[in-house]
Design a protein around this nucleic acid. Structure first.
Lengths: 235, 235
DNA sequence: CCAATTATTTGAACGCGTTCAAAAAAGGAA
DNA sequence: TTCCTTTTTTGAACGCGTTCAAATAATTGG
């Protein structure tokens, strides 16, 4: 949200907007739910919706953030019980997809925002990372020391890809990607061992490098969407 | 294109629109290049641009298709020389990123379209698949018979992920993702062997299942963006 | 209490992608 | 030529996400 509500009525208005947006998305899908319709259904003017949310996408981001927070609270207990790494991975994938399931049919444009954010900077990413850290640190036996530190980041990245596949999965009940999740857990757990092989290990590190911020943090400004730099030959 | 030009002047107009769009994208980025600006610079009216391209995205798709065609012609020779699987993979990844490099700075919105298409149906996907089939069938020694048939599909999927990482890579010269490509080739080649392990093999098959079309092809119609189905609880 | 500051709310506007009915131009058959 | 069909081209409009200056309401300090 662009402006945090500073009065109680403000918070009510913001909450009402969020709830109304959710209704609209559920009824008409993401794209067909216009800001005008959301604002109108919430009983406020169009421009006022932009007082609390600086864009339509930010409404989505807020909804997804709430979802992750719920999942975090729900998972925290299970991950501290000393189960295997594989079991912990499954637990997070399962609860994650359960939380997101109602949003699946909001349309591709909705869930595309899950993947599109520049990783690692925003609040939702840090919550996800915390979850995966608990997955690793709470597992028994602990994974090899060499990758224990970086494994959470890696699992975050892999889970993003899986949820992306799930988001676009059109098979009934997302059967395909759910199967993928089920089989992903044991493979990821065994991957920890494979990381002893130099080839796999170097790949592991390159994948991780993708998550780090750009050159000294200068690029956050420069990566705004209109970015004219080079000019290719016509084809 | 929504309408194929049926006269010579029509083809000229369409080509002029494509070339002008490319210029605009290179100068101002994708988002900042409005259809009005493109049409105006091409010397036609706004609505006329929609006679040959049914959307702005379709202009991008056409540019990318031309690019893949060039890459296909360029690669075909190298892939028939009987090099190793690893070498062939590298060749395709390298020529692919070389072809796409000038488009990298058009903005994230531009290259997002590469990943967003529903895989396997459109013309650009079938060209990509043809390339990966040549990668496999032209490699010596040939990969194990058990996965030889499905390996091209798998490589297509993996390469999509890699190019997606590259598209969003903000490190200078996309250093990170290029390194990832370099290390990907030997791992993918060795992966063929690992597929003998049942765990890896089942994952391989689930990943492949993601690429097949939905239930009996009915869903292509139903997956249009406004898709209201369920209604989640408010949060 | 009144004024000053801050928070909320609005209406009007802008540029965008896209659509559509209809005008203009081109081609072919008589 | 004239008429008819097909192809190309246009101008005007619609709804969208977003912005902004200005109006209203709430809060605070004297």
């Amino acid at each position: 949200m662009t402006t945090q509500p500073r009065t109680e009525k403000g918070q009510q208005t913001q909450a009402k907007l969020l709830a109304t947006a959710l209704e609209c998305f559920a009824t008409d899908g993401y794209k067909a739910s216009s800001m005008r319709a959301i604002a109108s259904n919430a009983g406020v003017s169009l421009s006022h919706a932009y007082y609390y949310f600086k864009s339509k996408e930010e409404i989505v981001a807020q909804l997804l953030l709430n979802l992750r927070r719920e999942q975090y609270d729900f998972c925290a207990g299970m991950l501290a019980e000393g189960n295997t790494l594989e079991a912990n991975i499954r637990a997070v994938l399962d609860t994650g997809v359960e939380a997101l399931a109602p949003y699946h049919d909001f349309g591709p444009a909705f869930l595309r925002l899950m993947l599109a954010r520049d990783m690692g900077n925003d609040e939702i990413s840090s919550i996800e990372l915390e979850i995966w850290e608990k997955v690793v640190s709470g597992s028994r036996p602990l994974p090899p020391l060499g990758i224990r530190r970086d494994l959470p980041k890696f699992l975050l990245l892999v889970s993003r890809q899986i949820f992306s596949a799930w988001a676009f999965d059109q098979s009934p009940q997302q059967r395909r990607s759910r199967l993928l999740m089920k089989n992903m857990a044991p493979v990821a757990a065994k991957f920890a061992v494979l990381c002893r092989l130099p080839v796999v290990r170097s790949l592991f590190e390159d994948v991780l490098a993708l998550m780090d911020p750009g050159p000294a943090g200068i690029d956050e400004v420069a990566m705004a969407d209109p970015s004219p730099l080079r000019r290719p030959k016509a084809s």
